[in-house]
Write a protein that binds this DNA or RNA. Structure first.
Lengths: 66, 66
DNA sequence: CACTTATGTCATGTTTGCTTGACATTTGGA
DNA sequence: TCCAAATGTCAAGCAAACATGACATAAGTG
């Protein structure tokens, strides 16, 4: 499950802490998602999509495997 | 987080066990998602969308609250 | 140089997603 | 009516998604 979070965030000039605050999660959670340590929950994925004005599919790319 | 899983499944004449097998999860997990006990993980939400040929947003409806 | 900001990471703990196994209830068909 | 399939639910356990706090490092800026 790859994602474009780092690019989208950088485009807006936000730090990981900025994004975390807007999403209502910890900074470490944003970092972990960006660095691929784990995938967000579905509710969080929806909040991310809503924040960037994108569909979930346009932020996260399913790799089919598993 | 509401979802149309029960309707989509019924349209295809599948039991919860049928759907669970196609998704690679336990029957109880399908039941728990349909009855709103918890939301699926993001990877599982993608598998569900792919199985029904729909976008995640067309299966799950974010209620904004949390 | 000293200081701040951003990022990465580790450790520990709680909550949630999901499992297996079991059992009760409902529903449909023979 | 009897039986089987479908559904709902509970309990116990594991793994993943969070949280908090701490620390290291790199890069910029005064």
């Amino acid at each position: 499950m790859k994602n474009r979070l780092r690019v989208l965030r950088a485009e807006r000039g936000w730090s990981q802490a900025d994004l975390a605050e807007r999403l209502g999660v910890a900074r470490q959670s944003v970092n972990a998602i960006e660095t691929g340590k784990f995938d967000p929950s579905l509710p969080l994925a929806f909040r991310i999509g809503r924040l960037f004005g994108l569909k979930v599919e346009d932020v996260f790319e399913d790799e089919g495997d598993q």
